[in-house]
Design a protein around this nucleic acid. Structure first.
Lengths: 209, 209
DNA sequence: CATACCTTTGACCAATTGGTTAATCTACAT
DNA sequence: ATGTAGATTAACCAATTGGTCAAAGGTATG
């Protein structure tokens, strides 16, 4: 029956997502996914022939979801500074809801770069950049942003929100001995990161230290 | 013989390091390590009883090596700004020489947080902070740095150099479509990152945009 | 030469794991 | 009722893999 089928496939997919994100492709066990979905292991292979196939679908779905989260920044009618603030608020919130995603994605990228590169081919980054550029032409001149240092700035922006989640286990260890709570730190980071970046890209006024 | 023993153990250790960093704990195969070391698999277990034990020793060695690379920053008699420039130059160079380290470390942290937390317990981060603070007491007031936002700043600094390596596979995919070379990007980042951070922590002068 | 001790090896084992298969079950159409 | 097609399962398989073991090799000592 189509109703039940959807249910089962959905259940499997959700379970697979959870297990893959938690354990990674190598660490994940088909039996664990089956158990979590409350079904037989053979049924897994009935719906998704192989582990590789299942993983690819899960990974593509996650990638699509993340990209969808990013893109609204392009549409918002905001100034550049407002966009940066908006980005960090939205992006960090998303990561708070999916804290294991950064580690998972980065790991799989390193484990199988070919797979991620194939998925990335479908996105036109140059287009995103030109869109952003046309939207903020005048503003960009006010800042240090040129075509040359744009990759530096973009990657720096993303680093600042993604890295703490990827390195969460490490940061928690460090924070422990300093009496800092990771969640509080992350909550404050929404605003800190925005101001940090805005200050960094603001042109230094000559003659004023 | 003690001479040969050292040789063999060394060979195993180097091979293990390479394979573990490349494939991660889960993905690494004892046979691969043995083959790379040019020895029998049984000999692996003769020197390092289990895979877990071998991995732990490798991981601890890497952690120690990284910490050793970090600490000179504390000793240098430099101004804060010079220290930031020195840090990025040295740190990015280290990562250029060991490009797979960030991905490896982050992955293992996420896969087994307990292990890394145990290792971290041996380091007194509070001490590092107080050392830094006493060294730059006057300067820090010139900047936005207080005890409260220090973790934000420190993690931001590290993010900017570590993240690109951890996400290398992804960045290369993006850069491809924009005609950017990762190595060039990374080389330029040594200077960019320093200026970026210095600008970010510099207090805004009121009345001047 | 013999003894003792450490190193090295090939063969082997038990457990895990991705994947298959044949049989059973369920719902629905006739 | 009955046949049919898809959904589900238990049992099973082959390959991989971490780990073991008894035997063999090598080397210094007496």
């Amino acid at each position: 029956m189509i109703e039940i089928e959807k249910q089962t496939e959905e259940k499997i997919f959700e379970a697979a997502t959870e297990v893959f994100v938690e354990k990674g492709m190598d660490g994940a066990r088909m039996q664990d996914i089956a158990s979590l979905a409350g079904i037989n292991k053979a049924l897994l292979h009935y719906y998704f022939r192989t582990k590789d196939q299942l993983f690819n679908k899960v990974f593509e779905m996650i990638a699509a979801k993340m990209i969808a989260k990013f893109s609204p920044v392009l549409d918002e009618k905001l100034s550049l500074e407002e966009k940066i603030r908006f980005f960090y608020k939205a992006h960090i919130k998303f990561l708070q809801d999916n804290p294991r995603l950064p580690g998972f994605i980065l790991n799989e990228i390193n484990r199988n770069p070919a797979r991620i590169k194939k998925i990335l081919k479908t996105i036109e980054f140059k287009k995103i950049w030109t869109t952003l550029y046309s939207q903020h032409k005048e503003e960009l001149e006010k800042y240090n942003i040129t075509e040359k240092n744009l990759p530096q700035i973009m990657t720096s922006i993303v680093s600042i929100s993604v890295f703490p989640f990827a390195a969460r286990g490490l940061l928690e260890g460090i924070f422990d001995s300093m009496g800092i709570d990771f969640d509080t730190y992350m909550e404050e980071r929404k605003e800190f990161a925005a101001e940090f970046v805005i200050r960094a890209i603001t042109k230094k006024v000559p003659g004023v230290s």
